[in-house]
Amino acid sequence: MPLTKEDVAGIADYARIALTPEELDEMTAYMNDAIDLLEPIRQYDLEGVEPTFHPIGDLSNVMAGDVPDTSVRALPLDAALRNAGSSRDRCFRVPSILGDQGGDR
């Protein structure tokens, strides 16, 4: 069932988009063309297929724990700081991005 101009005007109003009458005609045709492109998908037999909202299912956390892996050799601190533009103590020194705050942090 194609969208009517009233349908598209309602969608535009909901999205707070102002459309001229010409734009409304153009958008109605555009949205109906987009819906027509989805028609082949409607031909699939989806009987018994459960809807999903994520392609990986119920995966809840993909982040690894924030724990160093001691089985892998880590870069020594002196090697990490060797090519730094500037360093102090055991830290990289970088220019402030918040402006001059009256100190070296």
Rank of each mutant, 00 (worst) to 15 (best):
Q43P: 04
V72A: 11
D13W: 07
A64M: 03
N32K: 00
T70S: 09
L37I: 06
P55S: 02
V72Q: 11
A80K: 05
Y44K: 13
M1H: 14
L75M: 15
T28A: 01
E6H: 02
D58L: 12
E22R: 09
A9N: 09
A29M: 07
R88F: 02
R93P: 00
F53K: 12
G48L: 04
K5N: 13
R105A: 14
A84Q: 02
D100K: 09
F53P: 01
V67M: 12
M27W: 12
L77C: 03
V8N: 08
L98T: 02
T20W: 04
G85I: 08
R42A: 15
D100G: 04
D7G: 03
V94Y: 04
T4E: 08
E39R: 06
E23R: 10
E50R: 11
A74I: 04
V8I: 01
D104W: 05
T20Q: 08
I41K: 13
L46G: 03
H54F: 08
P95V: 08
P21L: 04
L46V: 14
A12R: 09
E26A: 14
F92L: 13
T4M: 04
D69K: 00
A15I: 00
A64N: 05
D36S: 10
N83W: 10
A34G: 09
D45H: 13
S87E: 03
N32H: 00
I17W: 05
D78M: 13
G102S: 05
P51R: 01
D100T: 05
E6C: 03
S96M: 06
D100A: 03
G99M: 03
S60M: 15
A18F: 06
E47P: 02
N32T: 01
L75Y: 12
A34F: 12
M27E: 13
A74Y: 04
E47S: 15
D66I: 10
E23S: 07
D69S: 05
A29I: 07
E23M: 04
A18W: 01
L3D: 07
T70A: 10
E6T: 08
E6M: 04
L19D: 06
L37E: 10
P68M: 03
D45L: 13
A64G: 07
S96T: 00
H54I: 01
L46Q: 10
C91N: 14
I97A: 15
C91I: 12
L24D: 00
G99F: 06
T4I: 02
D66K: 09
R93Y: 09
R73I: 11
I97W: 11
Y14L: 15
A80V: 05
T52N: 10
G102R: 08
S71W: 03
T4W: 09
R16H: 07
E6A: 11
P51C: 03
D69W: 03
L46R: 14
D58V: 12
S71M: 06
D33I: 04
Q43E: 14
D100S: 00
A12W: 08
E22K: 11
A9K: 11
T4L: 00
D104G: 07
V72I: 15
T52Q: 14
G10D: 00
D58C: 11
I97N: 14
V72W: 04
A79T: 13
D89T: 08
Y44V: 13
